[in-house]
Amino acid sequence: TLFEALYDYEARTEDDLSFHKGEKFQILNSSEGDWWEVRSLTTGETGYIPSPYLAPV
């Protein structure tokens, strides 16, 4: 399942991933609570992002 960003987000740590509203992601790991490890389909980068900022496509 692909997810889309509902809002912009600016990374706060080196493990976070900055992204823009509308960017699409592949979920790599969603078992860590509200922070999911994802791969951006736009940039190819991986990192953690807050799951409340995402919605299924």
Rank of each mutant, 00 (worst) to 15 (best):
S31K: 11
L17Q: 03
F25C: 02
T43W: 02
S31W: 09
F25M: 03
W36D: 00
F3M: 08
L41P: 02
E23M: 07
L17Y: 06
A5R: 00
R39W: 06
Y48S: 05
E45S: 10
W36K: 02
K21Y: 05
L41M: 12
L41G: 01
F3K: 01
T13Q: 11
D8V: 02
S40A: 07
E37L: 15
S30M: 14
P50K: 12
D15C: 15
S51T: 07
T1L: 13
T42Y: 09
L28H: 02
Y53P: 01
L54N: 03
Q26T: 10
I27V: 14
R39G: 01
G44V: 01
Y48D: 01
N29F: 07
T46L: 07
E4C: 09
V57G: 05
W35S: 07
L41H: 05
G44S: 05
F25K: 00
I27R: 07
R39C: 06
E23N: 06
G22W: 05
L54W: 04
W36M: 05
Y53S: 07
Y48P: 01
Y9W: 08
A55C: 07
H20G: 08
H20N: 10
V57Y: 08
P52C: 15
L54M: 07
F25Q: 00
S51I: 07
D8L: 03
G33M: 10
S31D: 12
P50I: 05
L41A: 05
K24H: 09
S31N: 11
G44D: 05
G22P: 00
Q26V: 15
Y7L: 10
S31M: 11
E14Q: 11
E10Q: 13
W35Q: 07
R39P: 00
T1A: 12
G33A: 13
P50R: 13
S31P: 08
L54G: 03
Q26R: 08
K21A: 10
K24V: 14
Y7T: 08
R12T: 13
P52L: 15
N29V: 07
E23K: 00
A11K: 10
Y7M: 12
S31F: 09
T43C: 03
A5W: 01
L6D: 02
P50V: 03
D15L: 14
D16E: 15
W36F: 06
L28T: 04
E4D: 02
D34T: 12
R12W: 08
T46G: 02
W36C: 03
Y48W: 15
W36G: 00
E45W: 10
G47L: 05
F25T: 00
R39S: 04
S40R: 14
E23P: 00
I27M: 06
D34Q: 11
A11Y: 04
E10T: 14
S51F: 10
T46Q: 09
P52K: 15
E23W: 08
A5Q: 01
S51H: 08
Y53N: 05
G22D: 02
K24S: 05
R39K: 11
P50E: 07
D8C: 09
E10A: 11
R12L: 12
G44I: 01
E4W: 10
S18H: 06
E37P: 02
K21D: 01
L17A: 03
D16V: 15
S18L: 02
S30F: 13
T46D: 03
A55P: 03
P56K: 06
D8R: 04
Y9M: 04
F25W: 01
L41F: 07
P56W: 06
E45R: 15
K21W: 04
D16L: 11
T1I: 13
